Measured scan of single mutants.
Amino acid sequence: DVEEQIRRLEEVLKKNQPVTWNGTTYTDPNEIKKVIEELRK
């Protein structure tokens, strides 16, 4: 469920934690926001 994935990513973003997505770890909040934007398409 895309909405659920977006919610999880936004939670991690608020906590300033790194996100691992498709084998890539993102630590930059701007990169995480880009992943969220991609999911919304």
Rank of each mutant, 00 (worst) to 15 (best):
D1N: 11
D1L: 13
D1P: 14
D1M: 08
D1H: 09
D1V: 10
D1R: 10
V2L: 09
V2R: 06
V2K: 08
E3F: 14
E3L: 15
E3W: 15
E3G: 08
E3S: 12
E4V: 05
E4H: 06
E4D: 11
E4A: 08
E4Q: 06
E4F: 05
E4I: 08
Q5Y: 09
Q5I: 15
Q5L: 14
Q5N: 09
Q5S: 10
I6N: 00
I6D: 01
I6L: 06
R7F: 06
R7V: 05
R7D: 05
R7N: 08
R7I: 10
R7P: 00
R8L: 14
R8N: 09
R8Q: 15
R8G: 09
L9A: 01
L9M: 07
L9G: 01
L9R: 00
E10Q: 08
E10R: 03
E10G: 04
E10A: 05
E10P: 00
E11P: 00
E11S: 08
E11T: 07
E11N: 09
E11W: 04
E11G: 06
E11H: 07
E11R: 04
V12K: 15
V12Q: 15
V12S: 15
V12A: 15
L13T: 02
L13A: 10
L13G: 02
L13S: 05
K14Y: 12
K14N: 13
K14E: 13
K14F: 07
K14R: 12
K14P: 02
K15P: 02
K15Y: 14
K15Q: 14
K15E: 09
K15S: 15
N16E: 02
N16A: 07
N16F: 13
N16P: 06
Q17V: 12
Q17M: 15
Q17Y: 13
Q17K: 09
P18D: 09
P18T: 12
P18F: 12
P18L: 08
V19K: 01
T20I: 15
T20S: 10
T20L: 12
T20V: 14
T20M: 13
T20Q: 12
W21K: 01
W21E: 01
W21C: 03
N22W: 06
N22E: 11
N22P: 02
N22H: 11
G23L: 02
G23V: 00
G23N: 06
G23K: 02
G23A: 03
T24N: 13
T24S: 08
T24H: 14
T24Y: 10
T24G: 04
T24I: 15
T25R: 03
T25K: 07
T25Y: 11
T25H: 10
T25L: 15
T25C: 05
T25A: 06
T25F: 14
T25E: 11
T27N: 13
T27E: 09
T27F: 12
T27Y: 13
T27W: 13
D28W: 03
D28S: 04
D28P: 01
D28A: 05
P29K: 08
P29R: 05
P29S: 09
P29V: 08
P29I: 07
P29T: 08
N30M: 13
E31D: 14
I32Y: 02
I32R: 00
I32A: 02
I32H: 00
I32K: 00
K33E: 07
K33L: 13
K34V: 07
K34T: 06
K34M: 10
V35R: 04
V35A: 04
V35W: 03
V35D: 01
V35T: 03
V35S: 01
V35Y: 04
V35P: 00
V35Q: 04
I36T: 01
I36Q: 00
E37K: 04
E37F: 04
E37W: 05
E37N: 07
E37M: 06
E38R: 08
E38N: 08
E38P: 00
E38C: 12
E38S: 10
E38W: 11
E38L: 11
E38D: 14
L39V: 03
L39D: 00
L39M: 06
L39R: 00
R40L: 10
R40H: 05
R40S: 05
R40I: 08
K41S: 12
K41P: 04
K41I: 12
K41Y: 11
K41G: 11
K41D: 08
K41A: 14
K41T: 12
K41V: 10
